[in-house]
Nucleic acid binder design. Structure first.
Lengths: 195, 195
DNA sequence: TCGGTTGTCTAGCAGTGCTAGATTCTGCGG
DNA sequence: CCGCAGAATCTAGCACTGCTAGACAACCGA
């Protein structure tokens, strides 16, 4: 059983190695630069090895995306508001910071269309965790409103800002005001200060 | 001069023919299916002809995107609110309807990264028109808030909803509530009815 | 030491964006 | 009407992509 175990362990390590390499390549030069040949060279194996671990290139991207969701969830959980700051703002800033610092990873997670099951099927736990953190951040300001729908609005707004910013389609001048306005609008009653 | 004119006219017609063909192909089977070979076959010319009109495939996509912006601007201008409906809601619904009915076109316009100059450079007029329509829709609810920044928030939210919906990442159950919540939040004071 | 399974690689397919060079077409002067 | 410059167009090919069949090598159990 020991050799079997060793093999499985080595296999798992290489599995993760491929994911990390793909992510590194993407973060460095964008997903267009992630080709099976380059990826194989980076992990120092031939291309077919990739296909013994993943069904295809899409599956590799998907694996990167799911791990990214886990990272986002962790980041959001860690993002506690500082003095006087609302939890909503802390979450929003952490989210946008993540999207700005890991653009390729964010792309794989939420922009590139993939057949990750988002519906009623078995959604990856990492995804549920990340969304759960957003729900928790929205909860304090929900008022009488539907919590899940309101979180979807919050998430959509952040996602829109993140993607349009990355495409340089929004004016950097408004970066601060924009977030203030969004948080103020979502918070019940107070339209002035988006603390 | 007449022959020269005729040639230029024919050239312009073919230019538009290529754009239309690309758009049709994309709307039918997605941008992945838009290859230079298929496109050339559809316009009944060989591939090099495409390159005598456009610098490359990206330029063709960009041309489609810009014309799409013009179409969106036209649609938004036409979207007048019906009785009791706010202008904001009319614009939001028209925007989301556009994104839902022309997913590939929307993709080329706002999702795919292209080097369309969005900054201070010479932005295509179609783009300014579309954004201007959004500004006009936001104006009635601006209150004391910065109009341009608030419009960016509005646009970002719509964009986020549109793209996440297309990726099936939002629950269709909340479609109505979600939009109500967004409009209610952006409209000053009233969080209940987002008329 | 052998045999079979397991793992890995080489070589290749069909398809991609794009382009150099050959070829055909066009309108004009003779 | 012919023949010719110049423009328009196509054929053929390059280097690349994702992916895979079949050959090869390494390994473990007997």
């Amino acid at each position: 059983m020991s050799i079997q175990n060793r093999r499985e362990r080595e296999r798992a390590e290489r599995h993760q190695l491929i994911i990390d390499a793909a992510r590194d390549l993407a973060e460095a030069d964008g997903w267009d630069a992630v080709t099976t040949r380059r990826l194989a060279e980076k992990v120092e194996y031939s291309q077919p090895v990739l296909y013994s671990h993943f069904k295809g290139k899409d599956a590799i991207v998907r694996a990167v995306a799911i791990q990214g969701c886990g990272e986002l969830a962790r980041l959001l959980r860690k993002a506690r508001p500082s003095r006087g700051e609302s939890r909503l703002r802390a979450a929003a800033e952490a989210y946008l910071e993540f999207a700005r610092r890991r653009p390729a990873l964010y792309d794989a997670m939420f922009v590139q269309q993939s057949d990750i099951p988002w519906g009623t099927d078995e959604v990856p736990q990492e995804l549920l965790d990340a969304f759960g953190e957003l729900v928790a951040a929205v909860e304090p300001v929900r008022g009488e409103r539907d919590l899940e729908a309101l979180t979807e609005v919050f998430w959509s707004s952040l996602h829109g800002i993140a993607t349009l910013m990355q495409g340089k389609r929004l004016r950097p001048v408004h970066d601060v005001t924009r977030l203030d306005l969004l948080l103020g609008a979502l918070s019940l009653g107070q339209h002035e200060d988006g603390l």
